[in-house]
């Protein structure tokens, strides 16, 4: 089946990145969809955490919460402690994966969801961190889902809302942050990871039909390219069928840019 849109492809790759038994702290939108997809398809004991206080809820197919923090998002949870407790799970180092989206991501995996331009003279004032900073600060590893275009993939974020590897090298560790930082960035063009030494973004896989040239053209900085660059396996019929059932109104899985 080749009939899928960029959002669908990205979510399926995100779903595959999660493993059964993991504890995953997810943000709203496509990360939520990816985690629920994984829970239903291949990771039945995946524990999803929401910042409002839902622990391991079971989201019903076709009844996806619009946001991660409202009544539908705690359906059949094992516990509903409060936000501060969820954040303390992060700070204790108990969360395997944090799963985030982002308006701007830079070559060291730092995220900006606060402002395009400067705080003093914003060209676009964005909503802010929410729980994203806390997830990025302390989850053992972080996956980012983003639409791939030059204005989002920038050399340096306008405002550092959520830490990736800060200035690269050992700067994250030196800052005293917990967790391993960003492990992978999943986009509609491919999968990116970070060089172990310099912590610069490296293209490790492209999706079928996507060239390295195209990825580089849509990235606002020089990408490292993995020696053993992979080509991802396209979504299967089974993966797509489940995904579409999760979002029948296509609130998240819109065509084109997401």
């Amino acid at each position: 089946m080749t009939d899928y849109n960029p959002a669908e492809l990205t979510v399926v790759i995100g779903s595959r990145s999660l493993q059964d038994g993991q504890i995953v702290f997810v943000g709203a939108g496509l990360p939520l969809l990816a985690a629920v997809h994984a829970q239903h398809l291949h990771a039945p004991t995946l524990s999803i955490l929401f910042e409002v206080g839902g622990v391991a809820p079971q989201v019903r197919i076709g009844s996806l919460p619009r946001s991660t923090n409202e009544a539908r998002s705690v359906r059949r949870s094992v516990a509903t402690p409060a936000t501060i407790d969820m954040m303390l799970f992060l700070q204790r180092g108990l969360v395997d994966v944090g799963f985030l989206g982002g308006a701007q991501v830079d070559k060291h995996g730092n995220l900006n969801s606060s402002v395009i331009g400067t705080l003093e003279k914003p060209s676009v004032r964005l909503p802010g961190s929410g729980g994203a900073n806390d997830i990025a600060s302390s989850a053992n590893k972080v996956f980012i889902i983003s639409y791939h275009e030059r204005r989002r993939f920038v050399e340096k974020v306008d405002f550092l809302t959520s830490p990736g590897f800060l200035d690269g090298g050992r700067s994250r560790e030196n800052e005293g942050l917990l967790g391993g930082g960003v492990e992978k960035v999943i986009t509609n063009l491919g999968i990116l990871e970070f060089d172990k030494e310099t912590r610069e973004m490296k293209l490790v896989a492209v999706h079928p039909g996507v060239s390295v040239k195209e990825v580089q053209e849509k990235t606002g900085f020089e990408l490292l390219i993995a020696d053993d660059l992979q080509v991802t396996t396209p979504p299967s019929a089974e993966e797509l069928t489940l995904l579409r059932a999760l979002d029948p109104e296509r609130r998240f899985l819109k065509a084109g840019e997401f």
């Binding site: 910042e51 936000t83 501060i84 954040m87 992060l90 700070q91 606060s114 961190s129 929410g130 729980g131 994203a132 900073n133 806390d134 600060s137 302390s138 405002f159 550092l160 809302t161 959520s162 830490p163 800060l166 700067s171 994250r172 800052e175 005293g176 942050l177 917990l178």
Partner: peptide, 29 residues
């Protein structure tokens, strides 16, 4: 961040002037 706001309120709820955390270090805010 959600965590620092929760901690700010928690500090006041505890009658304390601040609470320490490991979150948000290195961020611009």
């Amino acid at each position: 961040s959600n965590f620092t706001l929760a901690l700010g309120l928690k500090a006041a709820a505890m009658g304390l002037p601040f609470l320490p955390t490991r979150t948000a270090r290195g961020s611009d805010f």
